[in-house]
Design a protein around this nucleic acid. Structure first.
Lengths: 116, 116
DNA sequence: TATCACTATCGTTATTCGACGATTTACGAA
DNA sequence: TTCGTAAATCGTCGAATAACGATAGTGATA
């Protein structure tokens, strides 16, 4: 058992939800491509209204996936990779699960349920 | 450039959205813990109404994150890890990004934007 | 054919989300 | 102090989501 099991379904779902929007994925990719703080550039890149982008940034900040430091007229946004680790962990587990399940559906468990 | 860049923001968001609910995370974890096909056991484990769980399974199947094979009274659900790989790739990139960004906010890019 | 066990679908309701324009806030510079 | 720029917040609207009970479908078995 590692850290994943200490994270609730609700917490994992909240992380996924925070990134479950094209505009927010785009923002994450932008921050990934430029380790600089692209303040209001995000707004023009995303192509939505300023208030809408601000709302997406608010959601990402609330989930602590990005951080924002004020650099006066602008705000410096950066990624906070740590917050994504629990979800990364889950996905890695799924990816590395022995899925020869194409035909191996219904492997017998303890005592019941054998199927095919 | 690897496969990630060929995946649209919309596709990545759709994957995240499909798993962005506590009940669906729980289902994924259940399928991860038992490589067997736990048919209607999912319903009792999740603790929501049968129709609600069926709907969550429908969403996961529509996103091709799980597959369902009919084994008569029941349905055998299995994980389809491949579908999650694009999101896994993105998260790995974020996790491995050089984030000494605590203080390194505003690293200079090509020509502009230096900040602090 | 009739029954059963399980799953999927339908219809409804309450809540949340996403987008926008308009407004407000915050602060540096003139 | 006033102005200008960038970001955040507010209010509204329509669309999407989540949950449920009730109902319909499906196929094995009696």
């Amino acid at each position: 058992m590692n850290a994943l099991n200490l994270v609730s379904n609700e917490q994992l779902a909240a992380i996924a939800k925070a990134i479950a929007h094209p505009a927010r994925i785009q923002i994450i990719r932008l921050l990934l491509s430029k380790p600089s703080c692209i303040g209001g550039e995000i707004t023009s890149e995303v192509g939505l209204a300023q208030s809408t982008v601000s709302e997406h940034l608010r959601i990402l900040k609330a989930a602590e996936i990005v951080t924002g430091e004020i650099e006066h007229p602008r705000v410096c946004y950066s990624l906070n990779p740590e917050k994504l680790l629990p979800l990364l962990d889950l996905l890695q587990r799924v990816a590395s699960s022995q899925v020869t399940n194409d035909e191996a559906c219904c492997v017998s468990t303890n005592d019941k349920m054998v199927c095919k």
